[in-house]
Amino acid sequence: MTSCHIAEEHIQKVAIFGGTHGNELTGVFLVKHWLENGAEIQRTGLEVKPFITNPRAVKKCTRYIDCDLNRIFDLENLGKKMSEDLPYEVRRAQEINHLFGPKDSEDSYDIIFDLHNTTSNMGCTLILEDSRNNFLIQMFHYIKTSLAPLPCYVYLIEHPSLKYATTRSIAKYPVGIEVGPQPQGVLRADILDQMRKMIKHALDFIHHFNEGKEFPPCAIEVYKIIEKVDYPRDENGEIAAIIHPNLQDQDWKPLHPGDPMFLTLDGKTIPLGGDCTVYPVFVNEAAYYEKKEAFAKTTKLTLNAKSIRCCLH
């Protein structure tokens, strides 16, 4: 018999989150649709729960009410004593943790798909938090293969000092899905179709896995975050240069030392320094102006996964 890495157990509980950011409308629209008619997301033997994560922000069509829901799922915020004085999103995070967690427990949901849009030209993107997770690498390989020839990129946010504390991190297997470009507060049919297909293929993978299909060893190309880059700023902290036209919409493309990065209003080009080629992502993302992030630098690498098969009882 072929030796293989056996994944822990079959997958039982899956959640699909929309509206973690209330103005990213593809996930909101799909989740609302699936709450009314969820036939397309159901798979035999699998509990799939669509869920609106930040209903107040969705109602106002804004990213958040008090603070970013997708950055506060750490033990400090989840452990705060519940009171009306807490920011709305912290209270909501505790409610979500109660419903789908608790985080880092045996009772937490197996998989959470968190649906997002970006204003950046990132196409279909899967966000991975753990480079050693054979199950998710296999799932992402399946999704990428199923979507081809449509490109699907994998963004690895594993980093020693950049801690995200994402909404989906309460699950055993957290999956971020990011599709763009799409303006905030807008629905685009092409973007919706791409996100819908990503979810379909992900659920198909889980179904095949649960039925005992063995997935042979595989490898995927990923883009691992190195650092986030702020806009150049003046002495008052105001933005002093904008994304250069040569960099705009060039997510995932190589940016070499000396290539144009920013452009000042008086026409001066600010190039990339250093001696390493990087791959920019979230270029000129609207939501990241407040976070002082013009783009993120990534490096390209390959992740390998062992063969996996479900432990059938």
Rank of each mutant, 00 (worst) to 15 (best):
G273P: 09
K306H: 13
D104N: 15
Y164G: 15
K163T: 11
F51M: 10
I308D: 04
N117G: 04
I270N: 03
L78E: 11
Q138P: 01
A93R: 10
T62W: 10
K103F: 09
D275Q: 09
D234I: 00
K224D: 00
I170M: 12
F73M: 13
L69D: 07
W252F: 15
V186I: 11
V48Q: 02
C310V: 14
V28L: 13
L203I: 07
F100A: 04
V58P: 04
H208R: 11
Y231G: 06
V31W: 03
T277N: 03
F113P: 03
I206K: 06
P257G: 02
Q248K: 05
K49H: 12
N134W: 08
D275P: 08
E238P: 04
K60G: 12
P232Y: 01
R196Y: 03
D249S: 04
G38W: 09
K144E: 02
E24D: 15
K228T: 12
E106Q: 13
A305K: 01
D85K: 13
I177S: 04
F100W: 07
G180L: 06
E84Q: 14
E235F: 07
I239G: 06
R168P: 09
A219H: 09
P151E: 11
A171W: 02
T277Q: 06
E89Q: 05
E285L: 05
Y88S: 07
I170S: 06
P160D: 14
K253L: 08
R91E: 13
M82Y: 13
C310L: 12
R56H: 12
R196W: 04
Y288S: 15
I52W: 03
T166V: 08
I157C: 15
C218P: 03
L115V: 02
D107W: 11
Q138E: 02
V175M: 00
I206H: 00
L192H: 00
S120H: 02
T53M: 07
A286C: 11
D107K: 13
E8Y: 15
N134Q: 13
D259S: 07
A286K: 07
C67S: 11
V186G: 03
A296W: 07
K224A: 05
G45R: 07
P271H: 11
Q248E: 08
T2W: 07
I206S: 01
Y64M: 13
I127W: 10
Q94A: 12
P55Q: 11
V179N: 03
T167M: 11
P174A: 13
K172G: 05
D230P: 15
C124I: 08
S161E: 15
A15N: 06
N70P: 07
Y155W: 11
G19V: 03
Y288I: 11
F113Y: 03
E158T: 06
S169I: 05
V222G: 04
L255Q: 00
T118S: 12
G18T: 03
E285P: 03
Q182F: 03
R233T: 12
I111S: 02
N284C: 01
A296Y: 08
T264K: 08
Y289W: 12
L30G: 01
N70K: 08
I111D: 04
I191D: 05
N284G: 15
N304V: 11
D193I: 10
D110L: 02
G176T: 14
R168Q: 10
L136A: 01
I111K: 04
L115H: 03
L128M: 07
I96H: 06
P257S: 00
A219F: 08
E214N: 08
H256Y: 09
R132A: 13
E221P: 03
P149V: 04
L312S: 15
P260D: 07
E24M: 02
R233V: 14
L162T: 15
F17L: 09
S169D: 07
E221N: 05
E178I: 15
R91H: 12
E89W: 02
I308S: 00
Q94I: 13
K163H: 12
A296H: 15
D251Q: 01
P149L: 04
I72M: 15
E8Q: 14
Q248V: 09
P257Y: 06
T299P: 04
I177N: 05
L30S: 05
L78S: 10
F73T: 12
I220M: 11
I308R: 05
F51A: 06
D259N: 07
Y142N: 03
A241Y: 01
P245H: 01
T118Q: 04
T145H: 10
K292V: 08
N284V: 02
C218V: 10
A219R: 08
A93E: 06
F262V: 03
A287G: 13
E106Y: 11
I137L: 12
L255R: 02
L136I: 08
Y288P: 09
N133A: 06
P232K: 04
H159N: 14
E227I: 05
C67L: 12
K144Y: 00
D66K: 07
P245S: 00
K228L: 09
D68S: 06
T277R: 03
V28N: 13
D68F: 00
S120A: 14
K200P: 05
H141S: 08
L312T: 15
E36N: 12
S3R: 13
K80T: 14
G185N: 10
L187S: 08
T20A: 02
K297D: 03
A219Y: 07
A202S: 08
C218Y: 06
V281F: 01
I112M: 01
T118D: 02
N304Y: 12
F215E: 03
T298M: 06
P257N: 00
Y64P: 04
G258A: 08
V90D: 07
R132P: 07
T2C: 08
E8S: 13
A7Y: 15
R168W: 07
Q182M: 05
R233P: 02
E158V: 01
P216C: 03
T118G: 05
H207W: 11
E158W: 03
K60A: 14
K80C: 13
N134C: 09
T20F: 04
K59D: 12
V14S: 04
A305L: 02
G19I: 04
Q250N: 14
M198I: 15
P260E: 05
E76C: 12
I16E: 01
R92T: 09
P174N: 15
S120E: 04
C61Q: 13
G212H: 06
T62V: 14
D251M: 05
D275W: 04
A57R: 05
Y288K: 13
E129G: 08
L136G: 02
F113C: 02
N23C: 09
Y142Q: 03
S161C: 11
